[in-house]
């Protein structure tokens, strides 16, 4: 299996504070990877730095074997929900159509074909009846599904999701997870920033455990060890072991 993305020696500082130190890892094509770690561990920073949205001091990021600036359009990014102005005058379907912009290029406008494609993507997340609603009228879970539909509309090979389950109802969470698993079957690679350790073992095949540096990366069962968790979170988390099934060392 080939590398979908590789990160080498990524160092990021933010306003004089070290955010990430020497992070290196590789992700195989078709992997569904969770990025976990405590608050302020640099999880969002990692994906933003990988996309070049935050400047990094050193580091090389390659997507599908090519430098990031040549492969940007192949990455679909689902931002954190609180990064979005939900009062913006835009209907759900038009927000999903933005997903077609990267491949449209300058001066080309989305036409009927793009609109139909956007509706198909909305249907896939079960939101086709909400196309003509203003985005702020939706519940948190529905909003997240709409943004997943926008990512689907981009027809990308790689998906980055930043905290997609925050403020999201259970049924939306299940829908999103089901679609991510489907994408995996289609050979797409997905990285999900996820702050909640519970369910991490059910949702992902592989985990990246982060706390300003890479603590562990690999199969879920290998990463969710008491030792590594302690190293990342800095305190004994005995209370969690039943919940998430951390292996006793």
């Amino acid at each position: 299996m080939s590398n979908a993305l590789s990160v080498k020696n990524l160092n990021v500082s933010y306003l004089g504070n070290v955010a990430l130190t020497n992070v290196s890892f590789q992700v195989d094509e078709g992997a569904l990877v969770g990025i976990i770690g405590p608050n302020g561990a640099g999880k969002s920073t990692l994906i933003k730095a990988m996309m070049g949205l935050i400047p990094s001091e050193t580091g090389k990021v390659e997507i599908l074997g090519k430098p990031i600036r040549k492969t940007r359009k192949e990455i679909a990014y689902v931002p954190q929900r609180n990064d979005i102005d939900w009062d913006f005058p835009i209907h759900v379907i038009d927000a999903v159509m933005i997903g077609t912009y990267p491949h449209l290029g300058l001066f080309k406008r989305p036409k009927k074909q793009e609109r139909e494609w956007a509706y198909q993507c909305l249907e896939r997340v079960g939101m086709q009846d909400y196309g003509k609603r203003q985005i702020g009228e939706l519940s948190g879970g529905q909003q997240q599904r709409v943004f997943l539909a926008r990512a689907l509309a981009q027809n990308a090979d790689i998906f980055f999701l930043d905290e997609p389950f925050v403020g999201v109802d259970v049924s939306s969470e299940n829908t999103i997870m089901q679609i991510l698993k489907e994408l995996q079957k289609e050979g797409k690679t997905t990285l999900v920033v996820h702050h909640d350790l519970s369910k991490a073992n059910v949702y992902f095949d592989e985990l990246i455990l982060l706390n300003k540096e890479l603590i562990a990366k690999g199969e879920v069962t290998d990463v969710l060890e008491v030792n590594t968790i302690q190293k990342a979170y800095g305190n004994p988390l005995a209370f969690m072991k039943n919940e998430i099934g951390v292996k006793q060392a």
Binding site: M51, L53, R72, K73, I75, Y77, P79, D83, I84, D85, F88, I90, A95, I98, Y101, P102, L104, L106, K108, R109, P110, Q154
Partner: peptide, 16 residues
């Protein structure tokens, strides 16, 4: 298109 996406979601705009 460019004015819309940079006003609505500038992060996505620079991501692509």
């Amino acid at each position: 298109k460019e004015l819309l996406v940079t006003s609505f979601d500038p992060t996505m705009a620079s991501a692509y």
